[in-house]
Each structure stands twice: as C-alpha cells, then as structure tokens.
Amino acid sequence: MPVYTVHAPVMNDAGIRAADRFAFVRDGFHFWAALLGPIWLVWHGLWLALIGWIVVMVAVGIGMAALGAGGNAIFLVDILLALLMGFEAASLRRWTLSRRNWRQVDIVVAEDWESAERRFFDRWTAKQRTLVNDQLAVDRGGPPPTRDIPGQPFSRPPPLPSGEIIGSFPEPGGAR
C-alpha cells in the first residue's frame, strides 16, 4: 500500500484555513518523473531541482563524450539517470517543500491519494477538536511527568536513598 507524507505551510494563526494548501507526497517510484523528468519537475514547480537535473545531464553527456564513450553507453547512462529520477522524485518534492519552510505534519498509508486525504483529515480534525486548535501544544507536546504540578502524585521524583551508592562511583565528597 502506498505511503504518503503530508506537508503544511508554516502560517501563524492560520489553523484550519490552511487545510486547503496541504500537500500529499506519495513515496515510491514515479513513472512520469522517470519518463519525462524535466516536464514532471516543471509541473510540480521544482525549479532548483530542474536546474540541477539539466546540469547533471549536460555534465554526464559531455564527460562521457570526452572519455570516448559510445552512443550506446551514453544512452544507457541516460536511462539509469532517468530511473534514478523516478525513484527520487518524491524526495525532491519533500526537499523543495522543506526549503520553502513547509513542515511535515503526518504520514498516511492509503490505497490512493483521495483515501489518504480522507484518512489524514479524519485524524487531523479529531485532533483539532480535542486540542481546541492549540497549535503550540501540538508542536511542543505535553509537559514531562517530572514537573512540579500541584495535585499530581507523579510530579515529584522519588527521593534518592541516603548513604547508599547507586552505580559504580561514590558520591562526591563522601568517605572513601
């Protein structure tokens, strides 16, 4: 079953209004990226990756021609680079989203894009209802159980036994 990573733009106080801008990136091999690499990169707006792809393809072509490689060898290397593009297309999209200050919100396993979207938003809206849309609590997590919170028995750690050695070394300043 395909795995999708969900990415959201970093927007202060946007909350649920930013939900229409979430990006779902399917992990795995992308056939159209392997077959039509530059067109796929332009379609997804991966401009820096497109420039890198052009530089690599030109450098490999010129380098292999300078080494005296035949046309079949150059064609084989081009096929291998196209396969590499197909396998790494999702990573290029994630890299571009992270460069644009998007954060990865979740990972979803689903049959297709629509069911991944449905599964994610079911979980996300349930979490938003329970947190009363407190984005800071989502990002930071809850307080650790060792904080001094009045009325909670777990808030103070148990005292260390006095006069006993814990571990291999005695307490500093103690008798030897």
Rank of each mutant, 00 (worst) to 15 (best):
V55T: 11
V56A: 09
V56G: 02
M57V: 04
M57H: 07
V58W: 02
A59F: 05
V60I: 10
V60N: 09
I62L: 07
I62N: 04
I62D: 05
G63K: 00
A65L: 07
A65P: 02
A65M: 06
A66L: 09
A66H: 07
L67G: 09
G68M: 05
G68K: 03
G71E: 12
N72V: 13
N72C: 04
A73C: 03
A73P: 07
I74W: 14
L76H: 09
L76R: 13
L76Y: 13
L76E: 12
L76F: 13
V77N: 13
V77P: 06
V77H: 10
L80V: 14
L81A: 12
A82K: 15
A82I: 03
A82Y: 09
L83G: 15
M85I: 02
M85F: 12
L92N: 02
L92F: 01
R93L: 14
R94L: 13
R94F: 07
W95S: 15
T96G: 15
L97H: 14
L97G: 13
L97F: 14
L97Y: 14
L97A: 13
L97C: 12
S98Q: 02
S98R: 00
R99L: 13
R100M: 12
R100P: 02
N101Q: 10
N101L: 11
N101P: 03
N101D: 12
N101Y: 05
W102C: 07
R103W: 06
R103L: 10
V105W: 07
V105I: 14
V108F: 00
V108A: 00
A110P: 02
A110R: 01
E111P: 08
D112R: 00
W113S: 06
S115L: 04
S115I: 03
S115R: 08
S115T: 09
S115N: 08
E117V: 06
E117G: 11
E117L: 05
R118S: 05
R119S: 12
R119I: 03
F120E: 01
F121H: 08
F121Q: 08
F121I: 06
R123F: 06
W124S: 13
W124K: 02
W124Q: 12
